[in-house]
Design a protein around this nucleic acid. Sequence first.
DNA 1: CCCTATCCGACCTGGCTGGTAGGATTTAGC
DNA 2: GCTAAATCCTACCAGCCAGGTCGGATAGGG
Lengths: 151, 151
Amino acid sequence: MNFSAKTEYGVRLMVELGRQYGGSPTSLKAISEAEGLPLSYLEHVVADLKRAGLVEATRGARGGYRLERPPTKIGMDDVVMALEGTLAPMDCFVSLPTQRVNCSHEVDRGHACATKLLWTRVQGGVVRALKGTTLAELVEFSESHAPVAAA
Amino acid sequence: MNFSAKTEYGVRLMVELGRQYGGSPTSLKAISEAEGLPLSYLEHVVADLKRAGLVEATRGARGGYRLERPPTKIGMDDVVMALEGTLAPMDCFVSLPTQRVNCSHEVDRGHACATKLLWTRVQGGVVRALKGTTLAELVEFSESHAPVAAA
DNA sequence: CCCTATCCGACCTGGCTGGTAGGATTTAGC
DNA sequence: GCTAAATCCTACCAGCCAGGTCGGATAGGG
């Protein structure tokens, strides 16, 4: 069970933007330097976030990115979903837009696949944990634990 | 976020063994045929389960595998952990044997990595979901949903 | 205009996952 | 004791894709 590094980067990026919320847009360059992440890769990451409507861009000089909504209104489930594409713990586990989750090898032979029950519960646990955490919390957490705020 | 196919196979295998609990050992061949999984790969899978003390083997003709404990005493966290190796949602997220979980880039620059809070919660959710599910439940589920028990 | 940004798509590559192969060892049944 | 049916063990392989790079187009501020 592993979230991708892309997701880690994306979350870090969002936290960084959350920290600047209300101010002028933050450039990717600044973020990449602050977090020590490859700039060119961050472009892809932020593209996902933008597509999901979590972030808005200002082009041109002195441009950059800003959050679309206040950090308190951003659930981490949205963020992770945008980056990860899905929250299914198993490939066969597709949750159609309007439907409930369902496993592709539903009743593939005699008996329904038992793993379905398990993955449903796991997914539930993950989603609950993510939904119950807002970006604002992470921002606050990172700030309260900052040891020496830039010497 | 994805569990490996190996884990899926392993869980299916355990369910199959759970179904036979109390009887004579079940051979991998039988399981591979029942579940439509490659026999030679199952050998690797079952090796993990054995190493974790979940399953015991009888060698030789008419041999096979049996559960070490009754299905009601087997939490799915043990099973998945044995197969997956770890339940950390991020690579940097190592839980040392005797210690608490901790992220390798702890206080890697100015501020503690905020993602730690998030991954801790997610992991908690997953572990809770797994721990709260026993193999017995899955066995029962798969049996109760069996439509036509072998025509 | 020029510098700084976002934007966009093509491309590359190492490692990991899922799977195979082959042989050694153990044991039940005849 | 042979043989067949199993587990066991180790080495190998192939494809996929995550993570990362690059080049260039577009947009906007000073």
